[in-house]
C-alpha cells in the first residue's frame, strides 16, 4: 500500500521474485540455445532468437495464467500472485523481442512499410488453414502491450478497478490468439506430434485449473441462504477461525464476516484495490488484510487505516444460539458498526 505513486514499491520479496524470474528466463534461453546448437548445428542465430523468445514468452504466459486459479485452489500459492504483474511485464519484454525482431526480419527492407506488409502480404483472410497467422500474434501483442502499459496502480485507480480488471481479462483473448498464431504458423511446418502435444498439455492444464478453481468458488457461492427476519445465516460461530472470516454470497453480494478479539464484523468481500477476496484474508494488527496485495481495512467501519482512503460497505450482524447471521443490506461505505461481541 502507498499513498503516492512510485515506479515500483520495492521490498525484499519483490526483489527475490524478480531475481527468480530473471534467473529462470536466462536459464531457459541458455538451455534452448544449447540444446538447439547441439541437436541442430545448422540453425541460424535469427531462428534461435525468434524461437527462443517465442517459446519463453508462451511458457511464461502459461505460468501467469496458472497462478490465478492455483492461488484460489490453495492460498499458499498467494506469493506467486502478489507479484504476478512483474511476471506479466517480464513476459511482455520477452514477447517484444520476438515481435520486433520478427517484423524486422520478415517485413522490413521491402517495397512497402513493414506494418503494411504484416497485414497485406498474406491475404488469405478467407481461409482458416491459410489464415495470416502473424496478424493473430500481432493483435495478441497489442493486448499484452496494453496490459503491461496499464499494469501500474496509477492506471488501476484512474481507469477504476472494474475497467482495469476487464482490460486485464483480455489476457485470455491474447492467449487464444497466441495459440492460433502457433497452430496456424510454425506448427503447420513442424507438424511434430511432440510439439502439438506440448501445446495441448499446456492448454489442458490452464483449462483444468480454471475449471477446478471455478468449481470451488461456485460451491462456496451456491450454499442455500437460510433467512430469519431479514438476516441470513452465515456460519456457526465455532466454525469461524480466530482472525479469519467466513464468506456468504447473498443475491450476488459477497460478504466476509470476520472473527477477532472476541468480536465479529462484516464487510464487503471485494478489496478496493483489485477486487481481491478479503474473506480469504486475515486480521493482522487489528486490520483485515487482503490476501492478494496486503491492502488493509478496519473491520468495524471498513475504512483503510489513515492516511489511506479506501472504504468498504459494512453490514449488521446478529448472533443467536451460536449461529451468526448477517443483514445483506449494505451500509454506506465506511459506516461504523459496533462489532458484535460474543464473549
Amino acid at each position: 500500500m502507498s499513498v503516492k505513486y512510485v515506479g515500483v514499491l520495492w521490498n525484499k520479496q519483490k526483489k527475490r521474485y524478480d531475481k527468480t524470474i530473471a534467473l529462470l528466463a536466462i536459464l531457459y534461453l541458455v538451455l534452448f540455445v544449447g540444446f538447439n546448437v547441439l541437436l541442430h548445428p545448422t540453425i541460424s542465430p535469427e531462428a534461435l532468437l525468434v524461437r527462443s523468445t517465442a517459446t519463453l514468452a508462451l511458457l511464461m504466459l502459461h505460468v501467469i495464467l496458472a497462478i490465478g486459479p492455483m492461488a484460489r485452489i490453495n492460498t499458499k500459492f498467494l506469493p506467486l500472485l502478489y507479484n504476478r504483474r512483474h511476471l506479466g511485464v517480464s513476459m511482455f519484454l520477452v514477447a517484444t523481442i520476438h515481435v520486433v525482431f520478427s517484423i524486422i526480419q520478415f517485413h522490413s527492407l521491402g517495397n512497402v512499410n513493414a506494418f503494411v506488409s504484416l497485414f497485406a502480404s498474406n491475404t488469405h483472410y478467407d481461409s482458416f488453414v491459410n489464415f495470416p497467422f502473424q496478424v493473430l500474434g500481432f493483435y495478441a501483442f497489442i493486448i499484452i502491450l496494453l496490459m503491461a502499459a496499464t499494469s501500474h496502480d496509477f492506471w488501476l485507480n484512474n481507469l477504476s478497478p472494474k475497467v482495469w480488471k476487464s482490460l486485464h481479462m483480455l489476457v485470455y483473448v491474447a492467449y487464444a490468439l497466441i495459440i492460433m498464431h502457433v497452430m496456424l504458423g510454425v506448427i503447420q511446418l513442424e507438424k511434430s506430434p511432440l510439439l502439438i502435444g506440448m501445446l495441448a498439455v499446456g492448454m489442458l492444464t490452464i483449462i483444468t485449473l480454471h475449471l477446478v478453481a471455478a468449481y470451488k468458488t461456485h460451491r462456496a457461492d451456491t450454499k442455500e441462504n437460510i433467512e430469519e427476519e431479514g438476516f441470513v445465516f452465515v456460519s456457526n460461530l465455532e466454525d469461524i477461525k480466530p482472525n479469519r472470516a467466513k464468506v456468504v454470497t447473498i443475491a450476488n453480494e459477497s460478504i466476509a464476516v470476520f472473527k477477532y478479539e472476541g468480536k465479529l464484523s462484516a464487510v464487503h468481500n471485494a478489496c478496493k484495490h483489485q477486487n481481491g477476496p478479503l474473506g480469504e484474508g486475515k486480521i493482522i494488527d487489528g486490520c483485515i488484510t487482503c490476501p492478494w496485495h496486503g491492502y488493509q481495512y478496519k473491520p468495524n467501519d471498513g475504512c483503510a487505516p489513515e492516511p489511506f482512503t479506501e472504504k468498504l460497505h459494512t453490514y449488521d450482524l446478529r448472533l443467536k444460539e451460536g449461529k451468526v447471521y448477517v443483514n445483506p443490506n449494505p451500509k454506506p461505505e465506511g459506516t461504523h458498526i459496533e462489532p458484535l461481541s460474543y464473549e
Partner: peptide, 11 residues
C-alpha cells in the same frame, strides 16, 4: 527447452 529442440524438424 529440451523437448522443443527434439521436436523441431531441423535446419
Amino acid at each position: 527447452a529440451g523437448l522443443i529442440a527434439i521436436g523441431q524438424r531441423g535446419f
